[in-house]
C-alpha cells in the first residue's frame, strides 16, 4: 500500500478537480504513484471520477474526521474523561487496535480511536462488517471499570441508549433500538455497536466499545448490504457535520460510562424500552442451531430479550432478532 493516499485524500476531499501532474508535484511522487493511490482509495470504496484531460475529483466535497475539531466540541466535563482522540485513515479494526494495547499492558481508559476505513471490521456473531471509506462515523472507545456496577449485558443495551440519545440530540427523527443495541430508523439500520471485554465481569474489567453509524452510503452499498440500511444524510433535515456527530456520539458514551462509574443513573432499562421499536412485532430469533418465532415483548430487568412463543414468555441473552419471518 502506498503511503501517499492519506495526503492525497486530504487534497481531493475539497471536491475540486486535481490533475495527476499537479498532485504528483505536490506530493513529490510520480504520476504512476498517484494513480496507484487513487486505486487504493477506490478499493476502499471511495467514488473518484477521472475526467479525461483534467484529472481526478470526488463526486462531492468530503469532510474528513479531525481529532482536534472533535475535541473542541466536547464539554469541559467530558474532556476530563476523554484522555485522547486519534483519527487514522486506515486500520484493520479500531476495536482490535485498542485490544492490542491491552496485550501490551497499556491502559485504554478514556482513549478514543476513529478510523475513516477499517479493512477488518467485525460485527456480531464474528461476522465481517463492511463500511466504505468515510461513509460512516466509526470509532472505538476504551474504558476500565475497577468495579463493574452493572452486568456487561446491560452495558451493551446502555450503549445503544447512549447512541440513540446522541442522534436524538442532533434532531434525527424516529430513532429506535433493536435488541440488544442496533440503531434503527423506520425499520432501516443506521448503526451498530460491538463491545469487547476483558477481565472479571464484576471488575476490574476493560471494555472496548466499537461504534459504527452510517453517514453517507453510496446507492450501490444500500443495495449491496443484506439488510435494509439507511444513513444520516438521507434522513436528517439539516446538513450535519461528521465531526459534530462524532463529538455527540463520544460525549454521550462518556456521559453514560462516567455516571455508572460513580453509581449514577445505573438503570437505563426503561429508557431502552422507550426506544424499543420492535416490541409486539412478530419476529424470528436466530440462535446457534435453532430458530424461534414469536412476538417480541421487550426486555427484562437484566436486559434479556423477551419473546412470547405460543403464549409462553421466554427470555434470551443470545441470538439475533430478524423481522423477516
Amino acid at each position: 500500500m502506498k503511503k501517499e493516499y492519506p495526503s492525497l485524500l486530504r487534497i481531493i476531499s475539497d471536491g475540486n478537480v486535481h490533475s495527476g501532474e499537479v498532485l504528483a508535484a505536490k506530493l513529490g511522487v510520480s504520476r504512476v504513484a498517484i494513480w496507484k493511490s487513487i486505486q487504493s482509495l477506490r478499493n476502499m470504496g471511495l467514488e473518484i471520477s477521472a475526467i479525461s484531460g483534467k484529472g481526478y475529483c470526488l463526486n462531492t466535497k468530503l469532510e474528513l474526521l479531525a481529532g482536534s475539531d472533535i475535541n473542541n466540541m466536547l464539554s469541559e466535563k467530558i474532556k476530563r474523561f476523554c484522555r485522547d482522540i486519534n483519527v487514522v485513515l486506515k486500520i484493520k479494526s479500531t476495536n482490535s487496535d485498542l485490544l492490542n494495547r491491552l496485550n501490551e499492558r497499556k491502559s485504554i481508559h478514556g482513549c478514543v480511536l476513529l478510523a475513516e476505513y477499517q479493512s477488518d471490521g467485525r460485527g456480531r456473531r464474528n461476522k465481517k462488517w463492511y463500511s466504505p471509506i468515510a461513509s460512516g462515523i466509526c470509532f472505538s472507545l476504551g474504558w476500565r471499570f475497577e468495579l463493574m456496577p452493572i452486568s456487561p449485558g446491560l452495558l451493551s443495551l446502555y450503549m445503544g441508549v447512549a447512541i440513540a440519545r446522541a442522534l436524538d440530540s442532533l434532531e434525527i427523527e424516529g430513532i429506535g433500538l433493536k435488541w440488544p443495541n442496533d440503531i434503527i430508523v423506520k425499520n432501516h439500520k443506521i448503526g451498530g455497536i460491538l463491545l469487547d471485554i476483558r477481565g472479571e465481569s464484576a471488575g476490574p474489567l476493560d471494555i472496548v466499545i466499537g461504534v459504527g453509524v452510517n453517514y453517507k452510503l453510496a446507492k450501490k452499498e444500500i443495495f449491496d448490504i443484506n439488510q435494509p440500511v439507511t444513513d444520516i444524510s438521507s434522513i436528517s433535515k439539516k446538513s450535519l457535520s461528521r465531526n459534530m456527530i462524532a463529538a455527540s456520539l463520544i460525549s454521550n458514551i462518556f456521559e453514560v460510562l462516567s455516571d455508572l462509574q460513580v453509581g449514577l443513573n445505573t438503570n437505563l432499562v426503561d429508557e431502552w424500552r422507550k426506544y424499543d421499536c420492535y416490541s409486539e412485532k412478530e419476529a424470528k430469533l436466530i440462535l446457534a442451531g435453532e430458530e424461534i418465532t414469536g412476538i417480541l415483548k421487550g426486555v427484562n430487568e437484566q436486559g434479556a430479550l423477551l419473546i412470547s412463543v405460543d403464549g409462553e414468555l421466554l427470555s434470551y441473552n443470545s441470538g439475533e432478532v430478524s423481522l423477516r419471518i
Binding site: R125, P152, G153, S156, P180, I193, L195, R198
Partner: peptide, 16 residues
C-alpha cells in the same frame, strides 16, 4: 493470554 471469545448480547468476552 487470550484463549477464545464467548459472545452474548453483542459482547465479545475475551477469555484469558
Amino acid at each position: 493470554e487470550v484463549l477464545c471469545i464467548i459472545e452474548a448480547m453483542k459482547i465479545m468476552n475475551q477469555i484469558e
